Computed example of a mutant assay.
Amino acid sequence: MRKTNDIRVVRTQKALLEALDQLIKTKKLSCVSITELCSAADINRNTFYYHYNNINDLITENKQILEAELNEVLDVNNTRSRTTINEICKVLKRHPLFLSILVSPNCDVDLFEEIFGIASEKARIQIDRHKDITSASDLYSTYYCNAGCNAVLSAWIRSGMKESPDEVAEIISLSSRKGPISVLFPED
């Protein structure tokens, strides 16, 4: 279906993602049939097949759209990590249905780590530009920050993305700079 402004295509894609998000709450992604998905989305199977060959094509296309947006943000905002985290959160906020599907325990496709691998890799490159990471301590600290960032984003998605991108970016930025213990227990 490719990213488009055609309202019919946008509605169809949204209906498919909403239906898939509901279906994946009760069954594995691999067990969802196209007939079942189209019925839940209230679209004709021919419409589905006009755009996709199978459900994995729907997932892959949404993944590519999200990755392209993340890469764009990460290429443009490469100077201040707080700004970059905020922009990443804004991109994620535009894709709540797809991300809800990805973080579902019933999603057999492990794309969440793949998508956030982009952000983690870009963060590592940024750190490399500012500091040579040669010690195990520096390398593991980088991994720790990236894993923590991914955990916060995953929890945010699972909870329905109620907080603003700015609030989540501030939590990630503050925890990364000061450490989670200092944030949780500022007096100690």
Score class of each variant (00 low, 15 high):
93 K>L: 11
123 A>Y: 07
173 S>V: 03
134 T>W: 01
1 M>R: 04
120 S>M: 12
55 I>H: 03
148 G>K: 02
6 D>R: 10
126 Q>Y: 07
130 H>I: 15
83 T>V: 14
86 N>R: 11
168 V>L: 02
69 E>P: 00
63 K>G: 02
2 R>L: 13
61 E>D: 05
7 I>L: 14
133 I>R: 07
11 R>D: 11
109 V>E: 06
97 L>V: 15
143 Y>R: 12
179 G>A: 03
63 K>L: 10
26 T>A: 08
104 S>N: 14
37 L>A: 11
10 V>R: 11
135 S>E: 10
117 G>M: 08
124 R>Y: 11
142 T>K: 05
53 N>Y: 01
29 L>E: 09
36 E>H: 10
45 R>K: 15
183 V>C: 10
43 I>A: 06
82 R>C: 03
174 L>N: 05
113 E>S: 15
163 E>M: 10
73 V>N: 00
23 L>W: 11
39 S>I: 14
48 F>L: 10
31 C>H: 05
150 N>C: 05
104 S>C: 09
79 T>L: 14
30 S>A: 11
150 N>S: 06
82 R>T: 09
3 K>E: 11
103 V>W: 01
159 S>I: 08
53 N>T: 07
37 L>I: 12
164 S>G: 05
122 K>G: 01
174 L>R: 12
40 A>T: 10
25 K>Q: 14
170 E>G: 01
164 S>P: 00
75 D>Y: 03
95 H>E: 07
133 I>A: 05
138 D>M: 04
155 A>K: 03
95 H>V: 14
46 N>D: 10
29 L>V: 14
19 A>F: 07
97 L>F: 13
117 G>N: 06
102 L>H: 05
88 I>M: 02
3 K>C: 08
111 L>K: 08
131 K>D: 03
147 A>H: 05
85 I>E: 00
117 G>I: 12
129 R>V: 14
108 D>K: 08
132 D>T: 13
7 I>N: 02
5 N>F: 06
62 N>F: 11
140 Y>C: 03
123 A>K: 08
110 D>W: 06
84 T>P: 00
68 A>D: 02
147 A>V: 15
129 R>A: 11
36 E>T: 15
122 K>P: 00
39 S>F: 11
171 I>P: 00
61 E>Y: 04
183 V>E: 02
141 S>Q: 09
37 L>C: 08
94 R>W: 01
100 S>T: 15
32 V>S: 05
103 V>H: 02
5 N>S: 09
41 A>K: 02
130 H>A: 13
115 I>G: 01
33 S>H: 07
1 M>V: 13
83 T>Q: 06
95 H>I: 15
125 I>P: 00
14 K>G: 02
164 S>K: 09
85 I>H: 00
81 S>G: 07
68 A>C: 01
144 Y>V: 08
118 I>M: 03
174 L>W: 04
79 T>F: 11
99 L>M: 09
26 T>H: 04
16 L>V: 07
124 R>Q: 13
36 E>N: 07
136 A>Y: 08
93 K>D: 04
5 N>W: 03
145 C>W: 08
45 R>W: 06
186 P>L: 14
67 E>S: 13
141 S>I: 10
111 L>C: 06
40 A>M: 07
33 S>W: 04
35 T>R: 06
105 P>E: 14
178 K>G: 01
104 S>D: 04
35 T>L: 06
67 E>P: 00
